[in-house]
Simulated scan of single mutants.
Amino acid sequence: MSSVEDIERAVEQLSVEQRARFRAWFAEYDAARFDERIERDASAGKLDELAAEALAEHRHGRSREL
């Protein structure tokens, strides 16, 4: 049995309130890991090409205000 299956079974056993707390915790945890990954990729220059492409599109009038 994998640890993912163990986690799935444990989540199934949670009460409604516990699932809500778990959901909130996991959303925060997942967002923090995503932010860390973006920061690492940006620092490593992995997003430079995408940024340059977006700026070029904007300069050519292919963007709009939100």
Rank of each mutant, 00 (worst) to 15 (best):
M1D: 04
M1S: 07
M1F: 10
S3K: 14
S3E: 13
V4N: 13
E5Q: 03
E5H: 09
E5T: 06
E5N: 06
D6I: 01
D6R: 15
I7L: 11
I7V: 15
I7K: 01
E8Q: 05
R9Q: 07
R9D: 07
R9H: 11
A10I: 07
A10C: 03
A10L: 08
V11N: 03
E12R: 07
Q13V: 02
L14H: 03
S15F: 11
S15Q: 11
V16Q: 02
V16W: 12
V16L: 09
V16K: 08
Q18A: 12
Q18D: 13
Q18H: 03
R19P: 02
R19H: 10
A20Y: 15
A20E: 13
R21E: 08
R21W: 04
F22V: 02
R23F: 13
A24P: 01
A24E: 14
A24C: 00
A24W: 13
W25A: 04
W25L: 06
F26E: 03
F26C: 00
F26W: 14
F26P: 01
F26M: 07
F26D: 04
A27F: 11
E28A: 08
Y29M: 09
D30W: 10
D30P: 00
A31C: 13
A31L: 15
A32W: 05
A32V: 00
R33V: 09
R33W: 00
F34I: 13
F34N: 00
D35C: 06
D35Q: 12
D35G: 02
E36F: 04
E36I: 00
I38W: 02
I38D: 00
I38G: 01
I38A: 06
E39S: 08
R40W: 14
R40H: 10
R40V: 12
R40Q: 11
R40N: 04
R40L: 15
D41Y: 01
D41E: 15
D41H: 06
A42G: 05
S43W: 11
S43R: 15
A44F: 14
A44Y: 13
A44M: 15
A44D: 14
A44Q: 15
G45A: 05
G45Q: 11
G45P: 04
G45H: 08
K46M: 06
L47Q: 05
L47P: 02
L47W: 05
D48S: 06
D48V: 15
E49L: 11
E49W: 10
E49M: 08
L50C: 06
L50Y: 13
L50K: 15
A51N: 05
A51V: 13
A52N: 06
A52W: 07
A52Y: 07
A52P: 03
A52S: 08
E53I: 00
A54R: 15
A54D: 09
A56G: 04
A56H: 02
A56M: 03
E57A: 03
H58C: 04
H58Q: 11
H58N: 05
H58I: 05
R59L: 14
H60E: 14
H60D: 12
R62G: 01
R62L: 07
R62T: 01
R62H: 10
E65M: 05
E65H: 12
E65I: 08
L66D: 11
L66I: 07
L66Y: 12
